[in-house]
Structures are given as structure tokens and as C-alpha cells.
């Protein structure tokens, strides 16, 4: 399913990593060559890192099948190149499946099983074990002790900053594995599904693709084109989550979505009042 190894390496704009022995702290955006600067797209970055290099990603197009590189975008490493915490990704994905899961498995306790009111045989004199009910848990067809009872909710809340770090970890993993693409917008020239299919195939974007836009009213053409495919999905940026990112092979963000995600995460990481979000979650809170 994964076609990672057939991918062209030329698409990858990431700089060659330095060896650990010549590691030094870098000033941000210091050693960019002039021809790279000319393709740099202007972008304001909140809380720019002091000693980390900004990550770079190509800005791509969707209006032709062949890929065109429209420029280079700089990304904040705290959001797009942070520690890939697989454990946090796992905790997020597990939480997303569990908080909405209600188990309907059900067993009857001894008082719920029909019958069993009469003493099966006298207490003494028969040489048999003493019993008071044929529905006692010792009996076949009797009640079940500590069995599953329906409905059992599995709702719980993941801590706020675990959710934030889950998002940054997943975005970083997607970016590092070359599964994150940034496009100018989601406008495509035709509403033919074959166009989008061809485009995804020619760019090696993997079978399933998640397109993320800022507005929840998507352009008409891509809405119609993705409608027939179950593995091409559209999502507004407020719905972006760890589970969906993992479920799709490739994540395609619009440029505005990148700005939105980055600003929102950086704001949460520098929030003045964290008590409101870190307080214990109450189910009945208004």
C-alpha cells in the first residue's frame, strides 16, 4: 500500500541533515543562498525560533496534473519539525476511538435470570451440596458475576497539551515522511473525478488523500471530484485531528490552513491563562 520507496527524492526540499559531530546552534534564516531567497514566499512567523532553522516546504499547485513549484514556504519547527512522539500520537488516536465508544455487551446477573426462586433440593439428607437457587453463578445457565453490563461508556478526556503535542507530532511525522504537501488553494480546473485521480497518481500521493482548507465551504470543483472517491476527503481546518491524519496517506494543506494551524498552536503554547484549559474536565460544564 505504501509507495514510499518509489518516490522521487528530487521533490524533497528538506536540507541534507548535518552529522552530529559538526552540530552547532544555528541562527534562523542565516545561511540561505540568494537563488533560494528569490523563491521564498513571504510569511510572518509567530514566536520565531532563536537557534533553530526554519523548516521549508514547497508551495505546489493543483491546477495542472504535472506538479509546479510555486515557491518555498518557511514553517515553524515547533509545529512542523518537533520531536516525533509516537506515544503521544498513539494516545491521541486511542482517545479518539474510545471517547465516543459505548460498549453494549451485556450479561445477566442472578436476579435477572428467569426462575431460580425455589430451593432446588432440601438442605440436608440427600448427600448433595447445599444450594438455594438454580440461577446462582455456580450453576450452568445461572447469573454471571462481574460480567459486562450495558451501556458502558468509555469516555475520558486527554490532557489539553497532550492533544496539542499529538497534533504537532503527527504534523512533524507527516512532514518528515514527505506526506505533507502545501498548495495555494483547492481550486481545480474541472469537476471530472478522473482529473484528480490522475493528479494524485502522477504525484505519488498515495491512495488516500486528506485535503484541508480553512473555510468549511469548499470550492465546487474539488467537492464534486472527491465525492465519488471514498479515499479522497475534504476537511475544514477546525476538524483537523490526529486520527484522520494517520488514516490518510497524504495530507494536503492549503497555504491559509498552514497559517491557521501554526498560529493557533503557537498561541496555545504561549497562552497566558492555561488554567482554564488544563482544569479537570467536567462533563456537565456549560
Amino acid at each position: 500500500m505504501s509507495c514510499k520507496y518509489e518516490k522521487e527524492e528530487g521533490n524533497n526540499p528538506k536540507p541534507v541533515p548535518k552529522g552530529p559531530e559538526n552540530f552547532r546552534l544555528h541562527s534562523a534564516a542565516s545561511n540561505l543562498s540568494d537563488n533560494v531567497k528569490s523563491v521564498m514566499e513571504p510569511r510572518t512567523i509567530m514566536y520565531p525560533p532563536k537557534y533553530q532553522k526554519l523548516s521549508q516546504v514547497w508551495l505546489e499547485n493543483l491546477d495542472t496534473i504535472d506538479e509546479k513549484k510555486l515557491g518555498l514556504l518557511e514553517l515553524h519547527p515547533t509545529v512542523f519539525a518537533t520531536n516525533p512522539r509516537i506515544d503521544l500520537i498513539h494516545q491521541n488516536a486511542r482517545w479518539q476511538t474510545l471517547y465516543r465508544y459505548v460498549s453494549y455487551a451485556h450479561t445477566k446477573m442472578r436476579f435477572e435470570v428467569a426462575g431460580g426462586g425455589r430451593k432446588p433440593w432440601p438442605q440436608k439428607g440427600l448427600g448433595r451440596a447445599r444450594h438455594g437457587s438454580i440461577r446462582s453463578p455456580l450453576f450452568k445457565g445461572g447469573g454471571v458475576i462481574h460480567g459486562p453490563r450495558s451501556p458502558t461508556p468509555h469516555f475520558y478526556m486527554l490532557p489539553f497539551y497532550t492533544r496539542i503535542l499529538g497534533l504537532t507530532s503527527t504534523l512533524s511525522v507527516k512532514f518528515a515522511q514527505d506526506d505533507l504537501h502545501v498548495v495555494e488553494n483547492l481550486e481545480i480546473p474541472t469537476e471530472e473525478p478522473s482529473y484528480l485521480e490522475e493528479l494524485v497518481k502522477s504525484r505519488n500521493w498515495g491512495p488516500s488523500v486528506l485535503f484541508v482548507n480553512v473555510e468549511d465551504i469548499m470550492p465546487r470543483n474539488i467537492t464534486v471530484a472527491t465525492d465519488v472517491f471514498k479515499h479522497f476527503n475534504l476537511m475544514p481546518v477546525y476538524g483537523l485531528n490526529v486520527y484522520s491524519m494517520l488514516k490518510h496517506d497524504t495530507l494536503v494543506l492549503t497555504r491559509a490552513a498552514v497559517d491557521h494551524i501554526e498560529n493557533k498552536i503557537m498561541q496555545h503554547l504561549h497562552k497566558n491563562d492555561t488554567r482554564s484549559v488544563m482544569a479537570k474536565y467536567k462533563v456537565d460544564q456549560a
Partner: peptide
Amino acid sequence: ALNLMRHLPRVCLANIRD
């Protein structure tokens, strides 16, 4: 860690763990 990620199979719902 990120360099290692570049050479590993794609992280998906089937291959993550705590």
C-alpha cells in the same frame, strides 16, 4: 529522530504504540 522517520515506513494507525 526525524531523519530516522524519513527511512521508516509510513506511520499509520496500524503501526503506532504507546
